[in-house]
Design a protein around this nucleic acid. Structure first.
Length: 571
RNA sequence: GGGCCUGUAGCUCAGUUGGUUAGAGCAGAGCGCUCAUAACGCUUUUGUCGUAGGUUCGAGUCCUACCGGGCCUACCA
């Protein structure tokens, strides 16, 4: 038994996430966590909301509530949605927690002790009307390069030129539109990532099997231009982790907070500590996952994230942990995802284009989404959601191949033998053949799961379902029954055991349906089939079962058209 | 501009360290079955593997150029 720590990138607090966000970290990490638990490993699966930063403050202001209250409400919303998608986090924390605050301050203190924090005095734009400093992208004005009047302070979207806010002609606040801006001198802390460059480079080189997407992004940042640059890790904001050096005040940093990209990944640790608190345990409970000097030596740590998050997880966060000089557990494998597009375009919050988590759950069961998203996960390149593909995937894979298999077997048995696993006859060559076929597919399935190739693993799982239909067709118990009910009984008994097997194997992808299947077979306690032959004889003759209702209702063409229209967006 | 990824059957994608007739699912066609959510099974059509060169006994797989698509480029988290 291994110990596996799994973290999903933290969803940002400012709104409900769409399916692209879901498939980029939370969903695959959940399938992996469920699989690893099913294999008997000890799993700690962590996620949390990422609550700090300017967008959170602005979203709260727009909603007309204090930011702390806004975040608390939105945390609950996101927690409920996570539950709705059956995301099996051991703990879903908050980056604004007391635990994260303390650990963040502690790590900053250690970094400072080790000379990895630098104070930099810089000029920032302050908006008098808004009463706040503005991040570059929240300043708009006319581009000095192309004359576009909607250029942002970091870049002009029209001509793509990189800009400095002071380059803009007629700058104004993107928040209020106010032109009452001034440049003020302010002091900030920088994390000296540049000093960690060689260490990071060596560390990344020493990793094996990381996705190209992960390493290529990290390498680019390490070697582009002058190499890895230092990062400002504080901001002039009210909402965030107050800057402290451990438990001490940090002279000159009064009223400032650490910025999100510093404290967010630390919340992986913070949330594990929150979990310990919530379950009434002491610090040793979470430290054995995170401190190699306190039991985390044998932990295998896997992170899941969208590709936008890779620099923070390959460079900034490792810099923080390594730079502390303390024995923190570093990540062993970084699984990164490309984007999911919607009908060939981008998901867009502002245009209402695409599908958001709350809407998804209102129109279809979570298993439908889980199956389609995971079996089409953007693992090798971006993948595209279309209603046509969704409909086909659900109808063929879930309804026809798996759902109908369960249906045909249970209904046939009920009509010929009653709702009891029938006795008589014995397994023969046909059963041995399918068992061998499934054994091979199962090996593939497990290998792909271990390698976190969820798209391929889904194809393997489907092939295992198909094997059941092939078997039934070849065995034809409905014909055999006329001559030899005994032989037909053995076939049906075998097929019922296949159903039970499918229930167990399908858990990572479609947990609700898997549970229904196992409940119908009175086999809720069924374990992973380490011995496949034994597993296919686990349900003995005489055991009662119930014939389940239709497991997966199909999506009609009319319904698909309707949904297509509903989600087409405003334009 | 620079960097990375990608272009394989009508569609979505697999193709391991280069090695015999290039695969799967869906869609299409034919046949079979009738237990089942008109479901299932079998058989089957289609490919100049983006284009042009090169390396090699041999290239979808390596190299170069070009064409097309996507992403990243550090104050969105």
């Amino acid at each position: 038994m291994a110990r596996i720590l799994i973290t999903s990138a933290l969803p940002y607090i400012n709104g409900i996430k769409h399916l692209g966000n879901l498939v980029g970290s939370q969903l695959p990490s959940d399938a992996y966590a469920r699989y690893m638990r099913a294999r008997g490993h000890e799993v700690m699966f962590i996620c949390a909301t990422d609550e700090h930063g300017t967008p959170a403050e602005l979203a709260a202001a727009k909603a007309g509530v204090p930011v702390a209250e806004f975040c608390a409400d939105m945390w609950q919303v996101q927690k409920d949605l996570a539950d709705g998608f059956r995301l099996s986090f051991d703990y879903f924390g908050r980056s604004s927690s007391e635990r994260n605050r303390t650990i963040t301050q502690h790590l900053a203190g250690k970094l400072a002790d080790n000379g990895l924090i630098e104070e930099v005095s810089e000029k920032q734009v302050y908006s008098i009307a808004d009463g706040r400093y503005l991040p570059d992208r929240y300043i708009e004005g006319t581009c000095p390069n192309c004359g576009d009047d909607k250029a942002r302070g970091d870049q002009c979207e029209n001509c793509t030129k990189q800009l400095d806010p002071t380059d803009l002609i007629n700058p104004r606040s993107a928040i209020s539109g106010s032109t009452d801006l001034e440049v003020r001198e302010t002091k900030h802390l920088y994390l000296r990532q540049s000093a960690m460059r060689e260490k990071l480079d060596t560390w990344i080189d020493s990793q094996e099997g990381w996705p190209v997407l992960t390493t290529s992004i990290a390498k680019k940042w390490l070697h582009d231009g002058d190499g890895l640059r230092d990062r400002g890790i504080t901001r002039d904001l009210d909402w965030g982790v107050p800057v402290k050096r451990g438990e001490e005040n940090w002279p000159g940093m009064e009223g400032k907070v650490f910025y999100v990209w510093f404290d967010a990944p630390i919340e992986y640790i913070g949330a594990t500590a929150e979990w310990a608190d919530a379950t009434g345990q002491d610090d040793t409970a979470w430290e054995r996952w995170w401190r190699t000097d306190k039991g985390a030596d044998d932990v295998h740590y896997v992170q899941f994230m969208g590709k936008d998050n890779v620099p923070f997880h390959t460079l900034s966060f490792p810099s923080t942990l390594m730079g502390s000089g303390e024995p923190w557990k570093l990540v062993d494998f970084i699984k990164s995802y490309n984007w999911l597009t919607y009908e060939g375009g981008k998901f867009s919050t502002s245009q209402g284009r695409g599908i958001f988590m709350n809407q998804a759950l209102e129109i279809m069961p979570s298993d439908y989404w889980r199956w389609w998203l995971l079996s089409n996960a953007p693992e090798s390149s971006d993948s595209n959601f279309t209603w046509e593909s969704f409909q086909a995937g659900i109808n063929k894979d879930l309804a026809d191949v798996l759902g109908n298999f369960v249906s045909r077997v249970t209904k046939f048995c009920r009509s010929k033998f009653g709702e009891i696993v029938p006795e008589g006859g014995a397994y023969g060559e046909a059963e041995a053949d399918v068992t061998a076929e499934i054994a091979k597919r199962l090996r593939d399935y497990q290998n792909h799961m271990e390698a976190i190739e969820l798209r391929k693993a889904a194809a393997d799982l489907r092939a295992i379902w198909v094997a059941g239909n092939e078997y039934l067709q070849a065995a034809a118990p409905w014909s055999v029954f006329k001559e030899s009910p005994e032989d037909a009984a053995a076939m049906v008994r075998f097929a019922l055991n296949l159903i039970r097997l499918y229930g167990v194997l399908s858990k990572p992808y479609i947990p609700d349906a898997a549970e229904s299947i196992l409940a119908a077979m009175n086999s809720e306690e069924a374990q992973w089939p380490d011995d496949l032959e034994a597993a296919l004889g686990a349900m003995p003759a005489g055991q009662a079962f119930t014939t389940p209702d239709v497991l997966f209702a199909k999506i009609s063409d009319e319904r698909r058209d309707e949904l297509e229209a509903q989600f087409a967006g405003k334009d």
